[in-house]
Amino acid sequence: MEDEKIIDLYWARDEAAIHETDVKYHHYCGAIALRILENMEDAEECVNDTWLHTWNAVPPERPNILSVFLGHITRNLSIDRYRMKHAARRRSNMETVDLELADLEGRYHLDAQIEDRVIARAISDFLRQTDTFSRILFVRRYWYLESIHDLAERYNVSESKVKSNLFRTRKALRQHLLEEGVSIA
């Protein structure tokens, strides 16, 4: 079923919307959750929670791209669940992502009124200026939270190439955020 029709079902408050969403996007959302949680049961729960959250959010929202809308919810739910479960730290894909993003940590003092959305807009602008490969690599790594190994396999390149590309992109992003007026702490 097309995304528009599924969204119409949500707006019509037809429970078939959840079934159609599950048929079409279970694998997609499940993969996102599994990458973060690295646990099948937790991932399944997150996916089911995603359908519930979507049922509650639509309407009033009307997603432009349903897959991304669902993925975003799954991602947030999975990250929250991960952080709750991992009070005792251990090295995992999520933790590695956190460490990589520590490049940007503590370097900016953000005023309370600067919304995350504004920063997200700056990051989006930056990503549009980068080449396609770097952009997609960045999004797949930090939005979809795909592992370095999986990215290397997906694009048939070495892991070191993926790492170096991400490093350069993060470095350029840091510079971009500074130029955008985010003051250094």
């Binding site: 791209i65 947030n76 990250i79 995350d116 997200a120 990051i123 989006s124 396609t132 797949r140 939005w143």
Partner: peptide
């Protein structure tokens, strides 16, 4: 950096869509 992870989660949808559906050269 946890916040940065959340912020990245809010980047434009078309970028996320592109990353899912386009195979880069």
């Amino acid at each position: 950096h946890e916040r940065m992870l959340n912020v990245i989660g809010q980047i434009d949808e078309d970028l996320v869509f592109e990353a899912e559906h386009i195979v880069p050269e």
